[in-house]
Design a protein around this nucleic acid. Structure first.
Length: 322
DNA sequence: AAGACGAAAGTGGTTGA
DNA sequence: TCAACAACTTTCGTCTT
């Protein structure tokens, strides 16, 4: 597992993702008119025309609105475009019943015609290899995410990433299961609700190593620009799995924040940090959990928890007397 | 007996020559 | 391509409650 944890300073130096996230002004002319051109997938300066980033992933709606009135007009009713369905949820459904739109039975002399329409409709819907690929992939995505209880928004994000991968022909030589699992992993991270690779590989039809490899490949090729996961994002989930209450979460967040300030978290595995914070705070809040139990839900070893919590406790100046 | 502790060796990936 | 390396794991014997 482990995608490797790089010191943040290095990561930012070599790939200044943060800068791109936050960018407000053009590095060339310092104009503040930087906008996202969704149509071409570019981040560009409207003043001097500099393309700041040409790999911008479109996370907005598929239409543009220039004022509130237009927005209202363009936000159409009906189902939105939906990345979870291989045809984006916009396809026509033809019922198998021999009834017309008014519920009347279709006369026999037209039956043959209807059958032919249905047949072609079916063929067109899943027309080429790409569409068929998407169809199976999205079924698998659905299976994974419902097994893991992930919300719809994450499924959509994952589906969008997968779609991009298909479009760029990145699936060749990799199994659908592996790529869909890694898209899901990426989607979770993008939505700030990270799952570990281990958690995903437990329900996926692919092993952890391959998912990790596929993920690295995707994030490089699609320029996903995902920051290393933050321990805070794991905290709540682990705490609830351990049946710990709100104060422990708060305390844990507090501990992580302090550790961050002291530079203790850089280059360390986020799950380990989260686990250590939980260990400390559960003791401080008088509802201790064993290292063993925490290690289990966090997917790290007790040894790691020990190492982390020692470092943190020492630096923060917390002494744990048992 | 359960939990915590820590030393030592092993693992898989990154980095830099 | 390869060795050095950091983080983390596995394993195991010891100490503490």
């Amino acid at each position: 597992m482990k995608l490797g944890y790089v010191k943040m300073e290095n990561r930012l130096k070599e790939n200044p993702q943060k800068k791109i996230e936050k960018i407000q002004e053009c590095p060339e002319c310092s104009s503040e008119h930087v906008s996202k051109d969704y149509h071409r997938g570019e981040l560009l300066c409207e003043n001097c025309g500099l393309v700041i980033d040409d790999q911008y992933i479109d996370d907005g709606p598929e239409w543009r609105a220039f004022d509130a009135k237009q927005k209202e007009k363009r936000s159409r009713t009906g189902a939105p475009m939906n990345y979870l369905s291989h045809d984006k949820g916009l396809s026509t459904q033809i019922s198998w019943k021999n009834k017309d739109a008014y519920g009347r039975t279709i006369p026999h002399k037209n039956r043959g015609q209807i059958y032919r329409v249905r047949k072609w409709h079916r063929r067109i819907r899943v027309s080429n290899a790409t569409e068929r690929n998407l169809a199976t992939a999205l079924r698998e995505l659905d299976r994974l995410s419902s097994k893991m209880g992930l919300p719809r928004s994450i499924r959509e994000t994952a589906a969008m990433i997968y779609r991009k991968a298909v479009e760029k022909n990145l699936i060749r030589g990799r199994s659908i299961e592996t790529v869909i699992a890694s898209s899901l992993y990426a989607g979770c991270r993008k939505c700030d609700v990270p799952r570990t690779l281990t958690e995903i590989s437990n329900v996926a039809q692919a092993d952890e190593k391959q998912i990790g490899r596929a993920y690295r490949f995707l994030s490089r090729e699609l320029q996903l620009k995902l920051l290393p996961t933050k321990p805070e994002n794991y905290l709540k989930r682990f705490c609830s799995k351990l049946d710990l209450d709100r104060n422990v979460v708060n305390k844990g967040e507090n501990i992580i924040e302090q550790a961050n300030k002291l530079g203790l978290t850089s280059g360390k595995g986020p799950t380990g940090i989260a686990a250590a914070a939980i260990y400390i705070s559960s003791i401080l809040e008088g509802d201790p959990r064993t290292q063993r139990a925490i290690a289990e839900v966090a997917g790290v070893t007790e040894v790691t928890i020990r190492n982390r919590y020692k470092e943190i406790a020492e630096e923060i100046g917390i002494t744990i007397e048992t």
